Amino acid sequence: MGALPQILLLMLLVLGLTVGGLLWFDYLGLIDTRDSFAPLLRLVGRETRQVFDEPDDIMLMDRLRLEAFQEALRLQAEELSLQRDRLASYEQDLEKREQELAAAEKEMEEREVSLNERLRAYENRRAVLEQNSRYLTSMRPAEAVEILKGYDDQLMIETFRVTEELAARAGQMSLVSVWLSSLPPERAADIQRKMTLRPDE
């Protein structure tokens, strides 16, 4: 290696040692070199010392404390704003759920009312059918058949079924077979066929 490269290498080495030594002394607090090496420190990603316009101002520390306090207040205000937004969103969710629960409760109440009405209607119809069956059973068969001829098929079938249930409960013979035999053959056959079907058929 020639003399010139060796000289350049030594100069770079001396320069590196000098800069490193100055930065080390600055780190130890023996000297203050941060302001001088600020551009270099920024290049390597290190923080530089804050520069003040009036470093000898006696109110400098108070201003710094005030700025820090204002920054803390700003951050706290942002956090409070975020919390308010979250609370508003949570409140909206609660209101929505409350409305859904109220709608579901109203629907349940309507279903209950409808079910009770159907049950009362069924009980009332059942009571009417039982009473009608007792009237027909107490009559002479020919008179009962004349009345039954005026019934539509559904009412006649329901009357026959209730009559059979009441007779079975009382341990007596049902008059349904007697009534059917006295009906016109075609209608009797149609009624018997329908009575063998399930209610949903």
Rank of each mutant, 00 (worst) to 15 (best):
M1D: 07
M1V: 10
G2H: 12
L4Q: 10
P5W: 11
Q6L: 15
M11T: 14
L12W: 10
V19C: 04
F25V: 02
Y27R: 12
L28V: 03
L28H: 09
L30A: 07
I31W: 04
D32N: 11
D32S: 13
D35W: 01
S36V: 15
S36N: 01
F37I: 09
A38S: 13
A38D: 14
L40F: 13
V44E: 01
V44D: 00
T48L: 03
R49W: 01
Q50F: 06
Q50H: 02
Q50G: 06
Q50I: 11
F52D: 08
D53M: 03
D53Y: 02
P55F: 09
D57K: 02
I58Y: 02
M59P: 00
M61N: 11
R63A: 07
R65W: 04
L66Y: 04
L66W: 08
L66Q: 11
E67F: 03
A68K: 10
F69N: 11
Q70M: 11
R74Y: 06
L75V: 07
Q76D: 13
A77L: 05
E78Y: 03
E78D: 13
D85T: 11
D85E: 14
R86Y: 06
R86P: 00
L87C: 01
S89R: 15
Y90D: 13
E91A: 12
E100Q: 12
L101S: 00
L101D: 05
A104W: 13
E105D: 09
E107C: 04
M108S: 08
M108Y: 11
M108L: 13
E109Y: 03
E109D: 11
E110I: 00
E112L: 14
E112D: 09
V113I: 14
V113S: 05
S114R: 15
L115A: 14
E117C: 04
L119I: 09
L119M: 14
Y122E: 15
E130L: 08
E130V: 12
Q131P: 00
Q131W: 01
N132F: 10
N132W: 03
S133D: 02
S133V: 10
L136M: 10
T137S: 10
M139W: 01
M139A: 11
R140S: 12
R140F: 05
P141D: 08
P141I: 14
E143W: 06
A144T: 08
A144V: 05
A144F: 05
E146L: 11
G150T: 14
D153I: 01
D153N: 13
Q154F: 06
Q154S: 10
L155Q: 10
M156A: 08
T159V: 09
T163G: 02
T163I: 01
E164V: 05
E165P: 00
A168C: 00
A168F: 03
G171P: 02
G171D: 09
Q172T: 13
M173H: 07
M173W: 01
M173A: 12
V176C: 04
W179L: 12
L180A: 02
L180F: 03
L183D: 05
L183C: 03
P184Y: 03
P185D: 09
A188W: 06
A189P: 00
A189I: 00
T196Q: 15
R198S: 14
R198C: 01
